[in-house]
């Protein structure tokens, strides 16, 4: 769990994934036959060169949603933009960190006493929110903060039995699972790609697929769990703690039908709980990859409640089960004709 904690706590807003990459290289670089970082920051590790195909590519993205400094006010407050999909309702009264020195700051909110009833019915628009680092002038802020600096949520990883609390399970959980998978000996040549800028429109995955040109791609994700309170009789899956989440189709790609069947059957065989992801929700690097090369894509995720917010919950058993399922299914890849 120490590695997962490190990964979740590390800053890695899109475009600033360096810290996550360094942790991964240090933790598992020694298991790889080759380690390579491309010009955008995608991290590639390979294993099983020379083995008989198919060539397998595992992908997890290193970036997380966050904020970026847009400009600095005359009074030293920081106006910001969102990087990736963030609901502005989760932002007021949160702690954040900024830039290369990880300066502390808070996103302020007008005191309850000073806001009237009508005002409290409105969502504070993003353009009215500011980060306060305690500076009293523009020049003071400018000593520590530059336009374009990343801002991330100041949330720490904690474990409470099987329940894990952290920011960025989407997709540090996937990064972690891949770090475990690279220790495994697969029967195929495999390339492990920790990609960048997924939250910016699946950018890293696109160029990774163009470089690696694999036959099969397995994306490891942290996806939104939906077992949240509701009175309506609607789909509530995926559920936290009920196993790996398998994609049939999302908004960008149709998962390879044979790979989906292989994953489901392997889970049944091995007694691993599993669940389908709701169709047509979200998108992953697989969507970008199939547009570069015809490849068989599958997406396996852990469910996490409250992704894309400052703090999310995940279940330890889902992580363990997902790793086991992917290992077991990969063993059987030659049994299927894609």
């Amino acid at each position: 769990m120490e590695l997962l904690k490190q990964l979740c706590d590390a800053p890695g807003v899109s475009g600033h994934e360096d810290a996550v990459r360094e942790i991964l290289i240090k933790a598992v670089g020694s298991y790889a036959e080759s380690v390579h970082v491309d010009s955008l920051g995608n991290l590639f590790m390979t294993k099983g060169k020379g083995k008989k195909g198919p060539h397998l590519m595992f992908t997890a993205h290193t970036d997380e949603v966050g904020l970026m400094v847009e400009r600095i006010d005359d009074e030293g407050f920081i106006k910001f933009m969102t990087l990736g999909g963030i609901d502005p309702r989760v932002l007021p009264a949160k702690r954040v960190r900024i830039g290369k020195d990880a300066i502390c700051g808070v996103i302020g909110i007008k005191p309850f006493h000073l806001s009237d009833k009508e005002e409290r019915k409105e969502v504070t628009p993003l353009s009215d929110l500011r980060v306060d680092i305690g500076a009293s002038s523009r020049s003071e802020t400018e000593r520590f903060v530059d336009v374009g600096d990343p801002i991330w949520f100041d949330t720490l990883f904690e474990q409470q039995g099987d329940i894990l609390k952290a920011k960025a399970f989407d997709d540090r959980a996937g990064c972690y699972m891949m770090a475990e998978l690279i220790k495994h000996e697969f029967r195929f040549p495999a390339t492990f790609v920790w990609s960048v800028q997924e939250e910016m429109g699946l950018r890293g995955g696109r160029i990774a697929a163009a470089r690696v040109r694999p036959d099969i791609m397995i994306v490891l994700e942290g996806t939104g769990a939906c077992d949240l309170p509701t009175d309506a009789d609607v789909a509530r899956r995926p559920f936290l703690g009920k196993g790996p989440v398998i994609t049939i189709l999302d908004r960008t790609v149709v998962a390879n039908q044979r790979l989906v069947e292989l994953l489901c059957q392997t889970a049944e065989r091995d007694g691993i709980p599993w669940q389908f992801k709701r169709p047509l929700v979200g998108g992953t690097d697989a969507g970008a990859a199939v547009r570069v090369k015809a490849l068989g894509a599958a997406v396996v995720a852990i469910p996490a409640r409250y992704i894309h917010t400052p703090v999310a919950l995940a279940h330890l058993k889902d992580i363990i089960n997902t790793i086991e399922l992917v290992k077991a299914a990969a063993e059987r890849l030659r049994e299927v004709k894609l």
């Binding site: 189709l249 908004r251 960008t252 790609v253 149709v254 969507g287 199939v290 547009r291 570069v292 090369k293 015809a294 490849l295």
Partner: peptide, 14 residues
């Protein structure tokens, strides 16, 4: 995949 953002189109022509 025409109705899912032209999923197969670009790879087919590659």
């Amino acid at each position: 995949g025409r109705h899912l953002k032209f999923t197969g189109l670009t790879a087919a022509l590659e």
